[in-house]
């Protein structure tokens, strides 16, 4: 009891100022842009936003209005914002469904299948993870064009159904499942697919949640790839759609800000609801969230 109390208060009590200043700086760096974004989205005049940018006035709103949020839906010109939002949801849903299925199936086979050259495949996969996505964008774009998938949902979904990172994450989880459990299912007459589907997947929910969260954030925030692969509004997601508010001759800061808030809101809400899962997923993945 006494040691627990000492453990809790010991290091924090020694450096209260350092602790406070550190937290204040981190909060300022992370929270201030978000605060700025929300404040700007409530200002009615785009020129006012531009004029106040860079001064403390940028953080203050005197006449808040939700008008911008209505305007983004009825914005004149070629900007169907509601459509972008729906497109993003479609891309997210199918990327998650396929991504979870194929990444977990690949991981299961790597962990438990009698696969010749398994070690080589694993090494290659980790190697692939090191390759930056930007470096394969152009060949991938070429493939999509040749397949006739340019400007489609499929072009935004299919490439993300397999990811070395998520296969490896799930592979690590599956590898830790005791051999006896697999053997028990084999003796019970389950086929490899039944073992995967009926035994391994249901007990891998923590790992699947990790993958779902990371893949979901990655998909929702995608910018470069959908920018290259979508040429029309048909399948364009919200992340690219926001760029439409930055016209050649004028920038609609107020609308861009409120659209950014709309884009960010589901992620924030989701984060607040599943905070624990987010933290554990980032820790277990060993990557930046």
């Amino acid at each position: 009891m006494s040691s627990a109390t000492q453990g809790q208060s010991g290091p924090t009590d020694k450096f209260p100022v350092i602790k406070f200043v550190s937290i204040a700086i981190i909060s300022l760096v992370i929270v201030s842009p978000l605060f700025l974004l929300i404040v700007a989205s409530l200002k009615p005049d785009r020129f006012q936003i531009l004029a106040e940018m860079g001064s403390f006035k940028a953080f203050i709103v005197t006449n808040p209005t939700l008008k911008n949020y209505g305007d983004i839906l009825t914005f004149s010109g070629n900007q169907p914002f509601a459509r972008y939002l729906v497109n993003s949801v479609i891309v997210l849903t199918f990327t998650l469904l396929g991504g979870m299925l194929f990444n977990s199936m690949a991981a299961f086979v790597l962990a438990w299948g009698r696969l010749p050259g398994r070690a080589i495949i694993l090494t290659l996969m980790i190697g692939l993870y090191i390759v930056p996505q930007e470096s394969i964008v152009l060949p991938l774009l070429n493939i999509m064009n040749n397949l006739g998938l340019a400007d489609s949902f499929a072009a935004q979904i299919l490439p993300f159904w397999a990811s070395p990172l998520y296969v490896f994450l799930l592979y690590q989880f599956f590898s830790q499942i005791p051999r006896d459990l697999y053997d028990a299912a084999v003796v019970d007459g389950a086929s490899p697919f039944e073992i995967y589907w009926k035994v391994f997947l249901p007990i891998s929910l923590p790992a699947l949640a990790t993958v779902a969260i990371l893949l979901g954030i990655e998909t929702w925030n995608q910018y470069l790839w959908p920018l290259l692969v979508t040429q029309s509004n048909y399948a364009r997601p919200i992340s690219v759609g926001i760029a439409g508010f930055f016209g050649a001759d004028s920038i609609y800061w107020n609308l861009a800000m409120s659209a950014s808030v709309v884009m960010m809101a589901p992620v924030l809400a989701f984060y607040l609801m599943f905070q624990k899962w987010f933290v554990s997923s980032v820790i277990s993945s060993g990557v930046k969230g």
């Binding site: 028990a184 019970d188 007990i203």
Partner: peptide
């Protein structure tokens, strides 16, 4: 294994 007419009890129980 399932065609051999055997059932196995494991040290770790191996319950689902």
């Amino acid at each position: 294994p399932s065609e051999r007419g055997v059932a196995m009890v494991f040290q770790s129980y191996a319950l689902y």
